[in-house]
Amino acid sequence: MKDLLPDLCDLYPEQLQIADAIFTSYGKRCHFYGQVVTVSCFEDNSRIRETRQ
């Protein structure tokens, strides 16, 4: 599969933000994409389940 990230960064430099690669496994997928959302859930992860619905 072609790596589209350099092309996207060239075409849309003001609209893209690149997240730091802090994870090592993505469910055996080489690439993934989507909106990133930060959820604050101190000692209660039920907020995470709410975002997936």
Rank of each mutant, 00 (worst) to 15 (best):
K2R: 14
A21F: 05
L5V: 12
E14F: 11
G34D: 03
K2T: 11
Q35D: 01
D3A: 09
K28V: 03
T38S: 14
R47S: 05
M1F: 10
E14P: 01
Q53M: 14
T51W: 14
C9H: 12
K28P: 02
C41G: 09
D10C: 13
R47V: 02
V36I: 10
S46H: 04
C41R: 08
Y33V: 12
Y33F: 15
E43D: 15
D44F: 09
E14S: 13
I22C: 09
L16R: 04
D20T: 04
G34W: 04
G27R: 05
S25T: 06
F32G: 15
C9T: 13
Y12S: 07
Q35P: 02
Y12W: 03
T24V: 12
Q15I: 05
Q53A: 10
F42M: 13
H31I: 05
S25Q: 05
L11F: 04
Q35M: 08
V36L: 13
M1S: 05
F32R: 02
D20H: 08
E14R: 14
E50P: 06
H31S: 11
L4E: 07
A21T: 04
I22Y: 08
D10I: 12
N45S: 10
N45M: 07
T24Q: 10
F23N: 04
Q15S: 13
P13K: 00
F23T: 00
T38D: 13
C30S: 15
T51F: 11
I48D: 05
D44E: 12
A19W: 07
E14Y: 12
D20N: 04
S40V: 14
